[in-house]
Each structure stands twice: as C-alpha cells, then as structure tokens.
C-alpha cells in the first residue's frame, strides 16, 4: 500500500513536471500567458467597474465602495485564470478524436490522473508568476486586500480546479461518442464564467438566485476566494465552499468512473 502510493505520487509528480517542462520550452508563449493575458484581463474588468460607478453616479453598490469592486476585479481576473482549464480540456478531447489517446491508455496510468497532474503543474508554474500582478497592483493602488487570507483562497481555488478537471473528464466521455465536441467546452465555460462570479460578485444577484449560486460549488472558483480576500465573506462561507466542492467531487467522480468505462468499451482505437 505504502509502495503503491509512493509510485502513484512519483508518477504524478512526473506528469506535473512534464507540464512545466513543456510550457517552458516555448518561453515567449509562456510569458504572454502569465503576464500579458492577466494584465489585459485585469485591465478590462477594472475599466468595467470604473464605467459602472461613473455611469451610476453612486458611492457604493450593495454596501461596498468603488475600491472594493476594483480589488474584486483585480483578484477575480487572477483566480478565474486558475479556475478554468479550457486549454487542457481541448487537448483531452483532441487526444480522443485523433486517437493520440492510444499511447496513454496502454500504459499503467489513468487518463484522469495524467491530465489532472499536468493541469496542476501548469497552473502552479503560471500562478507563481501571475500572482505578482495582483499583489503589486493591490499594494500600489492601495486596494482593499487582506493579504493573510490569500493562501487559503488559493487553496480553495486549486481544490475547485480538481472539480473543473472532473467536469472536463466527463465532457471527454462524451467525446468518445460524438468525436467533435469543442462547442460543449465553449458553452460550458461561458456558463461557468457567470456561475463562478468572475463577471460580477455573486452577492449582487437578487434572491433566491443569490442563495442558490452561493451554495453551488462553482462559487469556489472565484467568488468565495476573492470575496474572502476582499472581506465580502468570512471563514464560514469558505468552509461551506470546501464542503460543496467536496460533495460535487464525490458525485461527479463516481459518475465519471462509470461513464469512462462505458465509453472506452465503445472506443474504436481511432487511427493507425
């Protein structure tokens, strides 16, 4: 048992390193990914809140002033980048439709762990650099941020990322039957964009939608971590977030396990 865990751990660490090595092979792409893209996204979302406050001509919205929303926009852009996996989901789907998956399923490892560890490795190597942007911006513009809360917020977001990966894995099960399903990924990500609270804080939505949205696991991607850092929510809501993600992980992993077996049984071993 002890040995098999050690083997599992070393293997997955190697997958994470694979993602790091692969990304660092293309240096310019890496720096655009970790610096230019987050700066642009943050800029757009901050401008949006500037426009909202100027257009509405108010001092506060829902009890929070402009600086709180600017801080929310700044951190939401950062966390949303961690909490999405469109790139790896596209890659997983492509592996199935092109038959490249052949080289993976004949090795003693699972497709799920192979991509999860790579995803975590990739997010780790991009997050440690991208984190510099909101930290510097929050400090320079003196935006409301509780720095001591950042580590727990990042942990919840990475935990939520495992759920995101499980959903990607479920989408891949469909890919065995329908081959081309990248439109699923785009539609799903648009929905998650709203449900995670990247576009606007979820507590701005009217009841009963607000209560429902806050109970869904998707809040764990952006709203809860950012709300925690910017003092919109407390530790209790964070714990609820961890529980919600855990329940979803158990249910969706059980479903994914059954679907994966059924899907592989129909797989025709595409190509070659």
């Amino acid at each position: 048992m002890k040995k098999s865990f050690a083997v599992f751990w070393k293997r997955n660490l190697a997958f994470a390193k694979l993602a790091i090595v692969s990304n660092l092979e293309y240096r310019l792409n890496y720096f655009v990914d970790v610096i230019v893209q987050p700066v642009l996204t943050t800029g757009i979302e901050i401008l949006l809140w500037f426009a909202v406050f100027k257009g509405a001509n108010v001092q506060t919205i829902n009890g929070f002033g402009r600086e709180y929303y600017l801080s929310y926009a700044l951190w939401a852009a950062f966390f949303a980048r961690i909490a999405t996996s469109w790139m790896y989901e596209f890659r997983m789907i492509e592996e199935i439709s092109s038959g490249t998956i052949n080289s993976l399923i004949v090795r003693p490892m699972s497709f799920y762990e192979y991509y999860l560890s790579q995803l975590l490795g990739y997010k780790f190597i991009t997050t440690i650099i991208s984190l510099i942007i909101p930290l510097i911006a929050a400090h320079y513009f003196n935006l409301p941020t509780i720095y001591s809360r950042v580590p727990l917020a990042v942990v919840l977001c990475f935990y939520y990322l495992i759920l995101v990966h499980t959903i990607s894995f479920l989408v891949c099960c469909v890919a065995f039957h329908l081959t081309k399903i990248s439109s699923f990924t785009v539609a799903k990500n648009l929905l998650f964009w709203i449900l995670m609270g990247e576009l606007f804080p979820l507590d701005l939505t009217p009841e009963p939608y607000k209560s429902i949205l806050l109970k869904l696991p998707f809040a764990g991607g952006v709203f809860l971590p950012v709300g925690y850092i910017t003092n919109r929510i407390g530790l209790n809501e964070m714990i609820t977030g961890f529980i919600s993600v855990t329940i979803s992980l158990v249910v969706l992993n059980a479903l994914a396990s059954v679907l994966w077996k059924k899907s592989l049984a129909t797989y025709a071993g595409t190509g070659a």
């Binding site: 070393k10 694979l18 090595v21 038959g99 490249t100 080289s103 190509g271």
Partner: peptide
Amino acid sequence: QKNQLWWDISPVDSYALLARIYD
C-alpha cells in the same frame, strides 16, 4: 503511424517520465 513519445520535449525527458510511469 502514431507518436507515442511526447512531441514538445526531448526524448530523455520522455524516458524519465516513462521510468516513473513503469516504476
């Protein structure tokens, strides 16, 4: 007709990964 090794990294990196996969 299909690559089994990893396209974006060197073969030595691929072999190191395979060594981990096969323990």
